[in-house]
């Protein structure tokens, strides 16, 4: 009896979930569908897929977006590498040693989490001007790399769970800080460092406001920024919705690939990051 009641309940659950899923995925469907249309297909059948597929939309979008991709790889690669290197070293020091000023340092690091970068947007912009790096890739790399607090917080938590005996033994053998860090801490921590790397790449790839403020040179635009200018141009100058949507798809692909290949770390990294920031 109860079994039948249950099946009835699940039937309803599926109906509700599918009704929620359709509008959730609708924008993604529309984006993919339009990205393969030429202008006449678009005006005739704007939503449903049409054949033949116009792959040349992607060719046209890529010709513009390739440059932005390269910029993103340089900026995000450098900033992620710097923040993880600097942050994991700091986490090593904070997690494994007790020294005068440790609490203070920790406070200075964590208090930054209460300063969202948006509220210091205006003075940060002036800082970039004063440093003379406005309109260079450094204007993105350095402030991005400075987003260290979360990395340090998560890594310190993890590093302090490593057993002290291993460190003692290595010290007996005369190991210094760099040896302990590179030979002991890093090899044991790749999964968590990977999750933090994914989190950094994710939010940097998503950021639009800061690049749109400090980068005006078209050649130095990031993907997010370039996508908006490219789409605006296609709306205002010469309507090619297919190409605009193709560019949107191209801008999404790297994160989608990252997600598909590392779903677990992806979810772990973003949950940790978003919840604590």
């Amino acid at each position: 009896m109860s079994r039948k009641l249950r099946w009835h309940n699940y039937y309803l659950s599926y109906v509700i979930l599918i009704l929620l899923l359709i509008p959730t995925l609708f924008p993604i469907f529309v984006m993919l569908s339009i990205s393969f249309k030429d202008f006449f297909q678009y005006t005739g059948t704007p939503l449903a897929p049409t054949w033949p597929l116009h792959w040349e939309n992607y060719k046209a979008a890529w010709d513009v977006m390739a440059r932005y991709y390269l910029n993103n790889i340089i900026i995000i690669g450098a900033a992620t590498a710097i923040s993880l290197a600097v942050g994991s070293l700091a986490a090593y020091a904070l997690a494994r040693y007790r020294f005068p000023g440790r609490q203070f340092v920790f406070f200075v690091i964590l208090a930054v989490l209460a300063i969202p970068s948006v509220v210091i947007l205006v003075p940060s912009f002036m800082l970039i001007v004063q440093l003379g790096i406005l309109n260079t890739l450094w204007a993105l790399i350095l402030p991005y790399a400075a987003h260290l607090s979360l990395v340090i917080f998560v890594l310190t938590t993890f590093f302090s769970t490593l057993p002290e005996e291993m460190f003692e033994a290595a010290r007996m053998d005369g190991a210094g800080h760099m040896t302990l860090y590179a030979r002991l801490v890093l090899p044991l921590s790749w999964p968590i460092i990977g999750a933090m790397a994914i989190f950094q790449v994710w939010w940097m790839w998503n950021d639009y406001v800061w690049p749109s403020l400090v980068i005006s040179d078209p050649v130095k635009r990031t993907v997010a920024q370039g996508l908006v200018t490219f789409t605006d141009a296609l709306i205002n100058v010469q309507p090619e919705p297919g190409q605009a949507m193709a560019a949107s798809v191209l801008a999404s692909i790297p994160l989608v690939i990252l997600f598909l290949f590392s779903m677990r770390s992806f979810i772990a990294g973003i949950t940790a990051g978003a919840v604590k920031s």
Binding site: L89, A93, F99, V112, I115, P143, A146
Partner: peptide, 23 residues
Amino acid sequence: LYLILLPTMLFLVIFFYYPAISG
């Protein structure tokens, strides 16, 4: 260890604390 922590502190002071106070 202080040397190890120096880059972190510099990054945070230059890109967070200075702009926050300046703002």
